[in-house]
């Protein structure tokens, strides 16, 4: 179980959020782009520091502004799949997945699971975006993460590949015993993948956001937010 509450002053709004995610569940954070979702994920990973708050993983304190403790990213043992371009360009796909693997003999199995066994010797720039993301997921899983963070992992892909990977992930996620926190701006993806859905708007939980967006009600906070809103592909 990972649980947290955070506060951080950002440029356009204040981040103020708390949630938790149990083992084996997928929590999907959904909301308009620029609403603080990536910042929350980065804070979870230890790449950003909140102004105040506490992050707990079971009994382990990852961050506590009161006691001043902050576990560095290296010691949190989590997997982080970024949107794109985080495979190491000087290594081939196999070497990328094995980069920090707990047990290198598992790579073949992972590659089989994600259907990239035939691409092990290729460098990242010689495979498609979808194949790179498959490898990035393998890289994260190979470390035996305690939590898996996925920040818009399929957003840069074309619609067909995105849907394909989304379905594969949905089928596979039952096998994982760790909490997965998944970020997306796409409501369909959130509804499709999530065991739990957390709508995040301007740094806080906004329970009505999904309904309002689906019903195309106007945003009550005015134009600035609407301008940042992504065009949602509701025709799934």
């Amino acid at each position: 179980m990972i649980s947290l509450h955070l506060k951080k002053q950002l440029r356009y709004f204040d981040l103020d959020i708390s949630f938790s995610c149990p083992e084996g569940k997928m929590l999907v954070m959904v909301g308009p782009s620029g609403g603080g979702k990536t910042t929350i994920i980065r804070i979870l990973a230890g790449l950003d520091v909140p102004d105040e708050g506490k992050i707990m993983f079971n009994d382990e304190v990852w961050f506590d502004s009161v006691s001043g403790s902050n576990l560095p990213p290296q010691k949190r043992h989590l997997g982080y799949v970024f949107q794109e371009y985080t495979l190491f360009p000087h290594l081939n796909l196999y070497e990328n997945a094995a980069f920090a693997a707990a047990d290198k003999s598992e790579i073949d199995e992972l590659f089989g699971m994600f259907k990239i066994s035939h691409l092990g010797k290729r460098k990242p720039h010689l495979v498609s975006g979808g194949e790179r993301q498959r490898c990035a997921i393998c890289q994260a899983l190979a470390t035996h993460p305690r939590v898996l963070l996925m920040d818009e992992p399929f957003s840069a892909l074309d619609v067909v590949t995105r849907r394909e990977l989304r379905e594969e992930l949905k089928n596979l996620k039952g096998k994982f015993s760790f909490p997965i926190i998944y970020v997306t701006h796409d409501i369909n993806e959130a509804l499709f993948l999530g065991d739990e859905i957390l709508p995040v708007v301007d740094g806080t939980v906004d329970a009505g956001w999904i309904r309002r967006t689906i019903n195309r009600e106007s945003s009550h906070t005015g134009i600035p937010k609407a301008a940042r809103d992504p065009k949602l592909a509701l025709a799934y």
């Binding site: 790449l47 989590l78 985080t86």
Partner: peptide, 13 residues
């Protein structure tokens, strides 16, 4: 790319 360094951090290096 800064993200490569960050990814390596998260991977535990």
């Amino acid at each position: 790319d800064r993200r490569l360094i960050e990814n390596a951090c998260v991977l535990g290096l």
